[in-house]
Amino acid sequence: MRVPLRQAARATVHLFLAAIMAFGAYIFITVLLITATGAVAVVGIWLVPETVLLIRRIAGAKRRLTASWTGRDIPEAYRPVTGTVRERVLMAVKDPGTLTDGRWLLAYYGYGWLTVLMLPLWPVGLVVDGVWSGLLRRQAVVLPLIVKLADVEARWSTALLRPSPQALLARRVEQLTATRADAVAAHGAELRRIERDLHDGAQARLVALSMRIGLAQRAYGADPDAARKLLSDAQAQAEEALTELRHVVRGIHPPILTDRGLAGAVRALAASSGLRVAVQDDGVADGPRAPAAVEAAAYFVIAEALTNTAKYSGSEHAEVLLARSRRGLSVRVRDEGCGGADESAGSGLLGMRRRVAALDGTVRVSSPVGGPTVVEVELPCVW
Rank of each mutant, 00 (worst) to 15 (best):
V207E: 06
R193G: 07
R180D: 03
A189T: 01
A204K: 10
L198G: 05
R192E: 15
R205H: 09
E190S: 12
D200S: 12
G214D: 00
E195S: 14
R192K: 12
G214M: 00
G188V: 05
D197M: 14
A189W: 02
V207A: 14
L191V: 12
G201C: 02
A186C: 11
M211V: 05
L198K: 00
R180L: 08
R205M: 06
R212D: 02
D200M: 01
L191C: 13
E195H: 14
G188A: 14
M211Q: 05
R192P: 02
G214T: 00
L191S: 12
A181D: 08
Q203N: 09
L209N: 02
A204T: 07
R193P: 01
M211H: 08
A204L: 11
A186K: 09
L209F: 11
V184R: 15
A189P: 01
S210W: 06
I213R: 02
A208P: 10
D197I: 03
G214C: 01
R193F: 03
A181H: 13
R205W: 07
A204I: 06
D197F: 04
M211R: 11
I213V: 03
S210F: 06
R192V: 14
A204C: 05
A208H: 12
A183G: 09
A183T: 05
A202W: 04
H199F: 15
Q203D: 08
A183R: 10
M211E: 05
E190K: 14
D197K: 06
R212Y: 10
H187L: 15
E195W: 03
A183F: 06
A202V: 09
E190Y: 14
D182V: 02
R196Y: 07
A181P: 00
A204R: 10
H199K: 11
A189L: 04
V184Q: 15
R205N: 02
H187E: 15
A202L: 04
E195R: 13
I194N: 09
A181N: 06
G188R: 13
A202Y: 02
A204D: 03
A189K: 03
Q203P: 07
S210M: 04
E190R: 15
D182W: 03
R180M: 10
A208R: 03
D182N: 04
H187V: 13
S210T: 03
L209H: 08
L206Q: 06
A181C: 02
L206E: 00
A183S: 08
L209V: 01
L191K: 13
I213A: 04
R180N: 06
G201P: 02
A189F: 00
L206H: 08
R196F: 03
D200Y: 13
L198W: 00
I194T: 12
G188F: 12
A202E: 07
A181Y: 06
G201Y: 01
R205T: 05
V184A: 15
R196H: 07
